[in-house]
Nucleic acid binder design. Sequence first.
DNA 1: TCAAGATGCGCGTTGGAGTCCCGAAGGAGA
DNA 2: TCTCCTTCGGGACTCCAACGCGCATCTTGA
Lengths: 174, 174
Amino acid sequence: MPVSGAETSFDAGNETLALDRKDLAILAELTTNARASHTELANKVGLSSTALARRQKALEDEGYIQAYQAALDLAQFGLTTTVLVRIALESQSDEALKAFEAEVVKCPSVVRCFLMSGTDDYILIVLARDIQDFERIHRTELSRLPRVARVQSSFALREIVNRAVPTVVFGEKR
Amino acid sequence: MPVSGAETSFDAGNETLALDRKDLAILAELTTNARASHTELANKVGLSSTALARRQKALEDEGYIQAYQAALDLAQFGLTTTVLVRIALESQSDEALKAFEAEVVKCPSVVRCFLMSGTDDYILIVLARDIQDFERIHRTELSRLPRVARVQSSFALREIVNRAVPTVVFGEKR
DNA sequence: TCAAGATGCGCGTTGGAGTCCCGAAGGAGA
DNA sequence: TCTCCTTCGGGACTCCAACGCGCATCTTGA
């Protein structure tokens, strides 16, 4: 169900995606101001508030918008240190993977965890207050993970890019 | 400036942080429902809407809440492939770093970029539609970055954890 | 005991959200 | 070419709830 006059469309998975530039403008704006009112958004996008409300609701119903969430300034909580952790398991058996994954989701300092191809290990992104704090995390969270053969940590000195959404999303249609 | 009766406090950088469990409950809830109304939040946290509004505004003014943003379902846009890219430069001179960083921020498919310690290289997180699409990104975005000596890519087979905020944040105070 | 700050209640105002209806634009089909 | 039909946009209206203010009360800490 196209949200508006389908211009061109491309295949996304098994569904046909058809968003025009106004839909993308709505999404781009909501990515910045999730609490914007209908009228406010309507002015920025160039629609009436009625038309905008319809489109926004459609975007929500069709799942393009998953949620509205507040972005916290983690530095204000002292979490200024990002660590990339590479973890190799003793075995790549299904049971070992499951056991590891069941525990890693409980680690409170882990924000991302990927199972990687090739070397068949995991990459974690961990947030810590500082290096000493990471030592504690390593001791109390990471070293207690099951089936781990090797843990290798590297610290991020600086973050150059941090986007929630790749800019390519907002430029696909015109 | 404490938001409420300071219970205990800990040092965050150079600022003193004093959030009680109600502040943390507000933040936790807003992390999920950024569009929740004052009354709605007040009920969940156990405050009157007036008190809640004051605390929320304080949290915004003091920078704990950076923004309210819509979370898009990137899979709906076909971006189902996450790639970790490790890039080493020809030189670690300041000029080389600056030149590289000035270009990497322009890459539309890059969502994260860290300068890493130890090996002195960069780690990028790239979102692609599929492997073929990553080949295109590699060709049109990554290989055009300046001063690059080596590019090494590994694909994420699965994402086990994806949190915006480490759960540790909401459990620090009581 | 006193002062400062935080809470909660009640109020009035405002602004947003939702509904209904109509008009315009574009396609399909005879 | 004409007409029907679908779809989207926009205006007007109503209703409800959110927001913000002021004041009295309570708690906390010095």
